[in-house]
Design a protein around this nucleic acid. Structure first.
Lengths: 335, 335
DNA sequence: TTGTAGGCGTTATCAC
DNA sequence: GTGATAACGCCTACAA
């Protein structure tokens, strides 16, 4: 494999000039550039990223930490990150944690090891460096793309999960529902807490009293939505609508209802959250909150670039807009 | 940031010993290791991967090329790769191509640039190096995880899409169907060709004559499945079952049928392909072919490791088993 | 078992 | 504008 020295020799210039031609062509004479380009083409030269990185102390990689990539929500988010990264000559390193904090910590140490320049988090866990920042030394570039305990001030990008949750309830209330159940996400996660808080806020605004019997905890998954609905039905409590913490949950809920011969939205209205494309093609098509997943990823990556390139240390927080999408899974209750 | 020299000084040994303790502890005295570990802990040392990589001429990254990661099929596959990579101290670099060959080629050149050690392909496109191998020089480590023109002999891992396609038809035939429609994937892709070939093979075995009017081309997506079914219905052709090239297609098809008031499986049976988890929770739950997506990814990564570590140059081909999963979207036709 | 020293390929700092 | 050269931090013969 040809290296920069070979190119220099071949083009009759110094290595320094070749390096400049590569990274800052503006400051080298066009004729020289031509010679160099010819040599590069002829010798099939490719710049060694490892050597350049060693010298510059940058890897041009961002590591993206997610518990799993096997769900459309996460993967849309990652795709958004990749788009912006690619456009800025950076690469995305996949860091799947499976919810394990020590795995997450090991990914963080890759930053000190120069395998990555920073980390974007879409995680319920937090790396130790964030919780207990080292007294000495600096904390590595981290951008959060999800809900976090408000006391931590990472640069972050989210949507207003509380307002969005309330919006769902207000929609159901307008249709005439007053017995509105809720299937939450795992309450250990901040996002679930926020969406549930939105549910309660919505009830309050609608002057409906909160009834704990109407709430079941799920895990954002199809199966957990299914199971939670079965529990709710078996408990005998009465309701005419269900607000779900995610579209997957809602799809599982609808499946359970249909298995029990309960019609949606005839007997029970169902609303989701996330706007997965599978929701639009469910039967009936799912009413949901649209979350700009890919844009969240794109914005997170831009925040990372800011942090990396300009020493823009101000912890910025971006809140992206959500919106209600009304489809056929919600309707007025039977009178 | 402390480097290996600092550790050596601190532990009272040479850098060579530290390096050995790090990469091959077996050949250094336990007591020495202790001292070194103490120094590492105290100085908070993290080995510089860039420098190590430069020296070893390896990045420990694999680049995974996919057209998009925004679908459960691809993402399960990537997750499988990441699992095995992580267990072997390698990292996954995401290479999203959006179907663009020049993007794919640019990812390939990252291998020469030492940003990645090899590439795993889940793509309908092929990089130029594969089509026209350079007369001089070697072709980079590539493993294919999808269907390819048979004349190319890359290491690859797949399932038998032809037999799987035939299996669906045989299932429908056993239920009593003879008018079986087919929504294919984009016929430019080898995988679509194979699954369609399976459909025809199945018909042949069942002694059903092939009728081109029963075939519509889709794109593996929900919307394309929906559209294809609408076209089929509007064409007026009669059928009692549909074999779809993917679960997404099938879900789109079911949505179209239900919008037209056609009951599944009462009036028309629908079968998918891939076994996405959304299929199991559809209404009715989708009959499909289970594809071991994550295992395909895992196997592909193992093949890559073989190629990278041992100079195992024999182009191996692995075919993983598929199986039919019968759920409620297929049933005997109305007599 | 451990130490010495050269080199991996690039970029950045000086000179000119 | 261009050239010479010293790092960047590590690994691995080779020597001891």
């Amino acid at each position: 494999m040809a290296n920069i020295k070979d190119i220099a020799r071949h083009a009759g210039v110094s290595v320094a000039t070749v390096s400049r031609a590569l990274s800052n062509p503006a400051i080298v004479r066009p004729k020289t550039i031509e010679k160099i380009e010819a040599a590069i083409a002829e010798l099939n030269y490719e710049r060694n990223h490892l050597a350049a990185g060693l010298r510059r102390q940058r890897s041009d990689n961002v590591i993206v930490a997610v518990p799993s990539i096997y769900n459309p929500f996460t993967s849309a988010f990652v795709q958004g990150i990749e788009n912006v990264a690619r456009a800025n000559n950076m690469r995305v390193l996949l860091g799947i944690t499976e919810g394990d904090v020590s795995t997450l910590n090991s990914y963080i140490s890759m930053i000190a090891g120069k395998q990555a320049d920073g980390m974007i988090l879409l995680e319920n866990n937090l790396p130790d460096v964030v919780r207990n920042p080292p007294t000495t030394g600096t904390i590595p570039p981290i951008v959060a793309a999800c809900e976090y305990p408000p006391e931590l001030d990472l640069p972050r990008v989210t949507i207003d999960n509380v307002e969005a949750g309330a919006l769902v309830v207000s929609h159901l209330r307008e249709l005439g529902h007053t017995r509105i159940a809720c299937i939450t996400g795992p309450m250990a996660q901040q996002m679930s807490k926020d969406r549930s808080a939105g549910y309660k806020l919505g009830l309050m605004r609608a002057r409906i009293e909160f009834d704990p019997a109407l709430v079941e905890e799920g895990e954002f998954s199809l199966q957990s939505g299914y199971d939670a609905m079965i529990r709710l039905l078996d408990s005998g409590v009465k309701f005419t609508a269900v607000a779900c913490a995610s579209d997957e949950t809602a799809l599982g809920v609808m499946s359970a209802l249909q298995h029990r011969g309960i019609s949606v939205p005839g007997d029970v209205s169902v609303a989701g959250f996330d706007d997965l494309r599978f929701g639009a093609f469910a039967s009936p098509p799912l009413t949901t909150i649209h979350v700009p997943t890919a844009e969240i990823g794109e914005t997170a990556m831009r925040l990372m670039l800011d942090r990396l390139l300009q020493q823009d240390q101000t912890a910025r927080e971006v809140t992206l807009p959500h919106r209600l999408i009304v489809r056929e899974s919600t309707a007025a209750p039977r009178s």
